[in-house]
């Protein structure tokens, strides 16, 4: 009896938060299909709980369990890369059909152009974070700024690129991001 209510509470919890959970895991793992798998795995682990608690506890627990599974996977990836020289599935980009090739090329050109229009420090913070595996603390140190400031630089750079992709002109986008 208690089992069914637990399962029901969980399935409601899952329905309500699944998208948030998957987004959270995508941020961690950088890969949507893996994020969905981990979300599923976290759900299964919660189902196996013998003494389920209140819903508010369950929600926090769901995210904690999912974060731990994700962390395990990231470490496993790192270990297998080091020891065996193997690489986990790289599935960061969605597959584009050939007819979208030109469109993708144009989008990439817009982003490249947008980055060049940004102040050098914003561009640098973004590129270091995205392409050279630096975290925001390290970037702060490299640029002589606080961690929080480094984070602002990066998120501003991303926002600026997005607005330029959405068709805003250089001056319009700058007015929005750097008012």
């Amino acid at each position: 009896m208690e089992d069914t209510t637990h399962a029901q509470a969980l399935s409601e919890l899952f329905e309500q938060h699944n998208r948030t959970l998957v987004n959270f895991l995508v941020a961690r793992l950088g890969n949507e299909s893996e994020a969905k798998e981990v979300a599923q795995e976290a759900y299964v682990r919660l189902l196996q709980l013998h003494e389920p608690g209140a819903v508010s506890f369950l929600r926090a627990y769901l995210f904690r369990v999912a974060a731990n599974i994700a962390l395990d996977r990231i470490r496993r990836r790192a270990v297998s890369e080091r020891l065996e020289g193997t690489y986990a599935d790289e599935d960061l980009t969605t597959t584009l059909g050939p007819d979208r090739e030109v469109q993708a090329t144009q989008s990439l050109a817009v982003v490249r152009q947008a980055l060049l229009e940004l102040p050098a420090r914003h561009r640098k913070a973004f590129l270091l974070q995205r392409f050279e595996d630096k975290n925001t603390t390290e970037i702060g140190r490299l640029l002589g700024i606080k961690e929080r400031q480094a984070r602002y630089y990066i998120s501003h750079a991303v926002t600026y690129c997005r607005l330029r992709l959405d068709g805003l002109s250089e001056s319009e986008a700058k007015a929005q991001v750097f008012p």
Binding site: T93, V111, R123, K124
Partner: peptide, 14 residues
């Protein structure tokens, strides 16, 4: 989209 620049980045610069 930006990940497409991966081959063009060196020392935090394009």
């Amino acid at each position: 989209i930006a990940d497409g620049l991966a081959g063009e980045v060196e020392n935090g610069e394009l």
